[in-house]
């Protein structure tokens, strides 16, 4: 391990312990590590966006292009400028034009993406035979179809959930709870993995104990 590696390992270990100290209670070490993270992340984002976006896509493109390809760059540059006007209260409303452009583009992409890439394929995949000739497969398909239909019924609010509709909605909420349980369990697994990762770093990379 080189001298620099050793130094950065010690810094990383110190910052990890500072963050872990919050588990006992809030303290200046935790605050220090938190502020370092926020500051360095913001600076990193800024550098990345400048060197991977603004510089190559706007400044370098303006220098290297000619004709239409050059002058079309005025449009995004102008919209970016409008966005920055948010900092001047008197003309802050102008930033809404840029926001409107972003929202419009996002909505257009989102709607087409959701329909073409999610709703249609998922509905297609949900159209399954309830009997396939094999008990295991058939049971899976039945659970899938019943859970889809009853969950949809739960979110159908045009009629009061009473009688048959109420029963289906109750079945639907049971499936939703099972899904939440699975997500929660999986989230715990993720958080524990992060802890294990940090402990492994402390015991293996820093202290060489394991």
């Amino acid at each position: 391990m080189s001298g620099m590696d050793l130094l950065f390992t010690w810094i990383a270990a110190g910052l990890t312990l500072a963050i872990f100290s919050f588990l006992y209670r809030d303290n200046p070490f935790y605050k220090f590590a938190e502020h370092i993270y926020v500051g360095s992340a913001a600076a990193y984002w800024f550098i990345y966006l400048w060197f991977f976006d603004v510089k190559p896509k706007l400044i370098d493109a303006w220098i290297s292009n000619t004709g239409f390809e050059r002058y079309i760059l005025i449009v995004p540059a102008f919209l970016s400028f409008l966005m920055l006007l948010r900092f001047i209260p008197k003309v802050a409303w102008l930033s809404r034009w840029a926001i409107a452009f972003t929202v419009g583009m996002g909505a257009g992409l989102g709607i087409t993406g959701a329909i073409q890439g999610y709703i249609v394929p998922q509905v297609k995949a949900g159209m399954l035979p309830l009997w396939t000739g094999q008990w295991g497969n058939s049971l899976n398909y039945i659970i899938l179809v019943v859970s889809t239909v009853t969950t949809l019924v739960y979110f159908f609010f045009s009629k009061e959930h009473k009688g048959g509709l109420g029963f289906l909605a109750k079945v639907g909420i049971m499936f939703i709870m099972i899904a939440f349980g699975a997500s929660f369990g999986s989230t715990i697994m993720a958080r524990i993995s992060l802890l294990i990762g940090r402990l492994y770093f402390l015991f293996h990379d820093w202290l060489h104990l394991v």
């Binding site: 394929p121 297609k124 995949a125 899938l144 997500s183 999986s186 697994m189 993720a190 993995s193």
Partner: peptide, 25 residues
């Protein structure tokens, strides 16, 4: 990550993806 993993199962079931790997496991 294991947080995101369960939400991606529908894509696997619908054959929109060819494999799914989740979390540390």
């Amino acid at each position: 990550t294991a947080v995101v993993w369960p939400d991606l199962y529908p894509y696997l079931q619908a054959h929109q993806i060819v494999g799914l790997i989740g979390g540390l496991r």
